[in-house]
């Protein structure tokens, strides 16, 4: 984490010294810098905000948008919010997961591809909504899931580009 090209955690946290109610902001900043919120950030954040590391972790995992492990090279964001759910998002997720050969954890072992669940993305008119590396795919119905899976497989094969 403190390797040359990454900002050290101390530098990231410094501006928050003495401020209250900044936990989520801190998570966002750390995730921006590292792509996820690493285990090694728990102690420093806890110390900064006078919390226990487990409390920090509890808040971190409560929000699905924060990652606790490095993001996969191809990241499929799957909305399971109420509208998407009603329109069959669970089944879409199952299909994607199966066709992409992802284990129950939702991640490939080599971290080349992974599915992350998000709660309502705020675009319910396009439900079910899927993001592929941040790019939205609208109305991915159960019927369209297989086609999307093949498309994603191709991106994975190209190493994420």
């Amino acid at each position: 984490m403190t390797s040359d090209h990454l900002e050290p955690i101390e530098a990231i946290l410094r501006p928050y010294q003495g401020r209250k109610g900044v936990l989520l902001e801190v998570f966002h900043r750390v995730q921006e810098a590292y792509g996820y919120v690493p285990q090694a950030a728990m102690e420093p954040i806890a110390k900064l905000l006078n919390l226990h590391p487990s409390t920090v972790y509890g808040s971190l995992t409560f929000y699905t948008e924060f990652r606790t492990a490095p993001p996969p090279r191809v990241l499929v964001g799957m909305c399971l919010g109420p509208t998407c759910h009603i329109r069959g998002a669970e089944t879409v997720k199952d299909i994607l997961q199966r066709r992409l050969g992802l284990p129950a954890s939702g991640h490939n072992d080599d971290n080349s591809c992974g599915i992350h669940v998000i709660q309502c993305a705020g675009h319910c008119q396009y439900a079910p909504l899927v993001y592929v590396n941040g790019e939205a795919r609208r109305e991915v119905t159960v019927g369209g899931a297989a086609a999307l899976a093949d498309e994603v497989s191709a991106v994975v094969a190209r190493g994420g580009r």
């Binding site: 226990h52 487990s54 509890g58 409560f62």
Partner: peptide, 10 residues
């Protein structure tokens, strides 16, 4: 006075 445990995920 510690918080070794926490409810995580939801």
């Amino acid at each position: 006075g510690l918080s070794c445990y926490e409810l995580t995920y939801k």
